[in-house]
Design a protein around this nucleic acid. Structure first.
Lengths: 252, 252
DNA sequence: CGAATAGTGTCTATAAGACATTATACT
DNA sequence: AGTATAATGTCTTATAGACACTATTCG
C-alpha cells in the first residue's frame, strides 16, 4: 500500500462491500448449513447464504457479520464461534455491480428450527452434502464460499478444539464423536476416539452432573477445556484435500 | 446476501478496496519479508507492505495482487506461490477513508536484491522476527497482517508441501531443511528430517543432475513432487499457537 | 590427510488402528 | 432377563525423537 498516482488526480474505484455467512450445525448426525430463500432479484426464489451489505460507511466488517447473524438467522454472535473465511471479489460475481464479499464461518450447536414469522422465517437447515455436490443449487458464487467454509471447518477440527463449538455447554464424548463424524462424513471407532479425547490435555473437562438421560448406561458429561490446540492432531484417515485460497485459484 | 431495504431507496455504502502483499523468502537462513518505504502520506517514510488500490472497477482482486506484485516488487506472479490471507476492514485502519484491504501471501525463492532505480527501488528484505516483535515498526495495521500471513505460512508448512515454494526448481534436502528452520525459527535434526522428506510420498522427486557445488560431499538434487498434502504432517515440536481469524478477534 | 558436508542405520517412546469385554442403566 | 449405551483394556504397527557412523568431495 504505497503511492498510487502516476496520474495526479487519480482516485481509487469504489466498490460495494457485503458479508456472507456460512453457518454450520449438526442435526440428525448430519452437517447442515443455514440457507435463506431470496425474496428479490437477482436469484429471487433461490437459496443463498445469509448476509448483506455493510450497514453504513463506519461499520466494522465483523460487526456487519454479527448484525446479519442476528437479523437474518436470529442468532446471537456472542454465543457462537465466528471466524473469517476470506474475501470473494470476482468482478462478475454479483449482477448488481461490483460487490466484494467477506465471508464468515459460524458454528452453532443444535438449535430449534427457525420460527416462521420471525426474522429468520425463510431460513432452512440444508444438508451440506447436497450443496457441495451441486444437487441443491445456490445463488451467486455461494457454492464456492460454502465449500471453502466447510473445508476450513473440517481442517480446524483436526488440530483445534473447534468441535466443541458444535456442542452445547455440557456434552458427552459420544456427542462430540457425532460432531466429528458429521463434519467429516465418516465413522470413527468409539474406543479410540474416547481415548484420544480424554488423553488430550485441555480438550474437555468433566462437567457437573455426572450422569444423564437415556435407555442405556448414563454418560459422563463434559465441557470445553482450556486448550485450543490439539497436539497431536485428530486424524481423519481419509487423505485430506489441500484447500486453495478463498475466492480464486492458486497460481504457480 | 438477501434483500436489504426496509427503506426503499437505501443503497449500500461504497468503500475503497486495496490489496496488500506479504511476500516471504529465506535469506541467510532467516525468514524475511519484503517491505517498501512509503514516499507519501499517510505514514510517509515508514515501512509498509507492498500493495495498492484496485486499478479499476472491473479488475479482479487477485489480479490486482499480481499486478502490484509486478509493479512494486518486480516479481512475476506466474512463478510464485500466491494465496489469500484474508480481508482487513476495521473502520479506522486507513486515515484516508474507508479502505478494505485484501491481503495475500506470496512465497518466493531467494532472489537478487531489489535493483535501485527499478520499480522496486525502495523495497527491502527485512527479518520477519524484527517485524513480529515490534522492533521494526510498520504502517497501518500491517503488523497484524504480517503476523497472520506468517502464521499461515508456518501452519501450511506442517501439512502441505509449501516449503518447496521457497526453493528454486532444483534443491537439496538440506536447503529444504533450512526453509523449515528459517520459517519456524528452530533447529531440526538432519537425519530425521531427511527420513521424513524422503519417505513422504510425493513431497520431492529426484532431479536431473545428481551432484553439485561445495566443499564437502556433493548433495543429491530434488524437485517438487506431485503431492500437495503431507500426511502425516511435519511436526514442529513447539506447541503451535492457534491462529485467530484474519482482521479481528474470535468471539465467544 | 584433515575438514566439511551428505547420507544412512538403530534403538526407543509415543500414539494410532484394530478389536472384545465389562458396566450401568432401561423395559 | 434382555437390550441398549457407556466405558475401559490389550495387542500390534507406524512414526517421531534421539543419537553415531560411513561416504564423498575439496584443499
Amino acid at each position: 500500500m504505497t503511492d498510487e498516482p502516476s496520474d495526479e488526480d487519480w482516485s481509487p474505484p469504489l466498490v460495494m462491500l457485503a458479508v456472507d455467512l456460512v453457518i454450520l450445525t449438526v442435526r440428525e448426525r448430519t452437517l447442515r448449513i443455514l440457507l435463506v430463500e431470496r425474496g428479490v432479484p437477482p436469484f429471487a426464489g433461490m437459496l443463498a447464504l445469509p448476509g448483506g451489505f455493510l450497514g453504513d460507511e463506519a461499520e466494522d466488517v465483523r460487526l456487519a457479520a454479527t448484525r446479519e447473524l442476528a437479523e437474518e438467522a436470529g442468532l446471537d454472535a456472542t454465543t457462537l464461534h465466528l471466524e473469517q473465511i476470506g474475501a470473494y471479489g470476482a468482478p462478475a460475481r454479483d449482477p448488481r455491480g461490483r460487490v466484494i464479499s467477506v465471508a464468515y464461518l459460524a458454528i452453532a450447536p443444535r438449535l430449534p428450527d427457525p420460527v416462521p414469522g420471525s426474522d429468520a422465517a425463510d431460513a432452512r437447515w440444508e444438508p451440506a452434502t447436497a450443496v457441495l455436490s451441486g444437487q441443491l443449487p445456490v445463488a451467486f458464487d455461494h457454492r464456492e464460499i460454502i465449500a471453502d467454509g466447510i473445508e476450513q471447518a473440517r481442517a480446524k477440527l483436526e488440530h483445534t478444539t473447534l468441535a466443541t463449538a458444535f456442542c452445547h455447554e455440557n456434552f458427552t464424548i459420544t456427542e462430540l464423536q457425532h460432531v466429528y463424524e458429521a463434519v467429516w462424513d465418516l465413522r470413527l471407532d468409539p474406543r479410540n476416539f474416547a481415548r484420544k479425547v480424554r488423553r488430550t490435555e485441555g480438550f474437555v473437562a468433566p462437567a457437573g452432573t455426572p450422569r444423564r438421560t437415556g435407555s442405556g448406561r448414563p454418560a459422563q458429561l463434559f465441557q470445553r477445556g482450556e486448550g485450543r490446540v490439539l497436539y497431536p492432531p485428530m486424524t481423519r484417515a481419509t487423505t485430506a484435500t489441500v484447500t486453495g485460497t478463498p475466492g480464486e485459484e492458486t497460481a504457480g
